[in-house]
């Protein structure tokens, strides 16, 4: 039998291969992020001051919504074709497999957002250093969001009216990530010290990485009982 890292790697690789075969699905949230972020200047106003003021918050909310949008598919297709049950009955620890799937989810939905974010930051008239801070906060924040979202996705998998419910469950829980993320970028944009927020985001991500897979695997077992 493969070791724990073998299981983690195999689960993640399987999901990544599936995404690779149908890249369109995982690109949709990315386009969604870009479009929502482009809507705000139209609504808020196009002057550089307005954009600089609204930028951190807008980009963070857009990223949060894009992550939320991508979460639906985390366990859905596996649930529909029965491979989720195969994972549940397999002798390998479900915690590790849930973590593997979440890692694959972050790589296909969180990481593209992080890579795209400097471009959007420049569109919002941010300075290069601030764009870097945005990238770092998004990288740490989307890890937490992927993990938190995996609990919600596991709880609502197989429910027909899952989409709206998933948002209802996840959005309140993701508030600290949003606060720390957007606030840190705002502080950086204003020229203040911003490292505390990055540390807090990192701490949150590490804490979530440690604890959340257990909740996710418990939720998966409950949803499929």
């Amino acid at each position: 039998m493969p070791g724990l890292f073998g299981v983690l790697f195999a689960t993640a690789r399987r999901d990544l291969t599936l995404v690779w075969k149908r890249p369109g699905d995982s690109l949709n949230p990315l386009f969604f992020f870009a479009m929502v972020a482009s809507l705000f200047p139209l609504a808020v106003g196009p002057t550089p001051e307005q954009l600089q003021f609204a930028g951190p918050g807008v980009l963070w909310v857009a990223a949060l919504l894009a992550m939320l949008l991508s979460l639906n598919s985390l366990f859905m297709s596996d649930f529909e074709d029965g491979s989720l049950e195969q994972l549940l009955v397999s002798p390998q620890p479900l915690v590790v497999m849930a973590l593997g799937k979440t890692i694959a989810h972050w790589l296909t939905s969180g990481l593209p957002l992080v890579i795209l974010s400097p471009v959007m930051a420049l569109a919002f008239q941010m300075e290069l250093e601030v764009a870097g801070v945005l990238m770092v906060t998004l990288a740490l924040g989307t890890i937490s969001l992927s993990l938190l979202g995996s609990v919600g996705a596991a709880l609502t998998v197989g429910l027909h009216r899952g989409t709206a419910l998933l948002s209802l469950l996840i959005l309140p829980l993701s508030m600290p990530v949003l606060i720390f993320g957007a606030r840190t970028v705002s502080l950086a944009a204003a020229g203040d010290a911003y490292s505390a927020g990055i540390y807090a985001l990192a701490a949150y991500a590490v804490g979530a990485l440690t604890l959340v897979p257990f909740a996710t695997s418990a939720a998966l077992r409950i949803s499929n009982s």
């Binding site: 938190l148 829980l173 949803s223």
Partner: peptide
């Protein structure tokens, strides 16, 4: 199922 699922959510919260 509702009992167990909501218990997990309450504890995460």
């Amino acid at each position: 199922r509702a009992d167990k699922a909501s218990a997990v959510l309450a504890m995460v919260g």
